[in-house]
């Protein structure tokens, strides 16, 4: 992996509970793969004011954040599953790192 730092934004409805849990899971994964990232979490109301390389959220929130500035949007059917996160996030990270 190269030295570029990716920015990742996790979003849930209120932005204090599930997005924070996701943030912890993302941090754990990124440490495992030694990918440099900056992770923040947000709520669905104000999410559009942010931008990030990768946005991670759930399908029910998708319509509320349509048009957000992100290179990739990852939708998790099961936000608790670390396996699903790994399967969807790692290829996205690799693609973004290789294209730059």
């Amino acid at each position: 992996m190269n030295n570029k730092t990716l920015s990742i934004l996790t979003i849930c409805a209120v932005g204090v509970g599930s997005s924070l849990m996701l943030k912890t899971n993302v941090r754990e994964l990124m440490d495992k793969y030694s990918i440099r990232v900056k992770i923040s979490n947000s709520d669905m109301t104000t999410a559009k004011g942010n931008e990030a390389d990768i946005v991670i959220t759930t399908p029910d929130i998708e319509s509320s954040i349509r048009g957000i500035k992100a290179k990739k949007i990852i939708l998790l059917d099961n936000m608790v599953s670390k396996k699903e996160l790994e399967e969807k996030l790692i290829p996205a990270c690799k693609e973004l790192l290789e294209n730059n």
């Binding site: 849930c12 409805a13 509970g17 599930s18 936000m79």
Partner: peptide, 15 residues
Amino acid sequence: GLDYPTVFQFAPTAV
């Protein structure tokens, strides 16, 4: 012990 939305996936319409 997790937060509310973690179970919403089991019944999206019931939410």
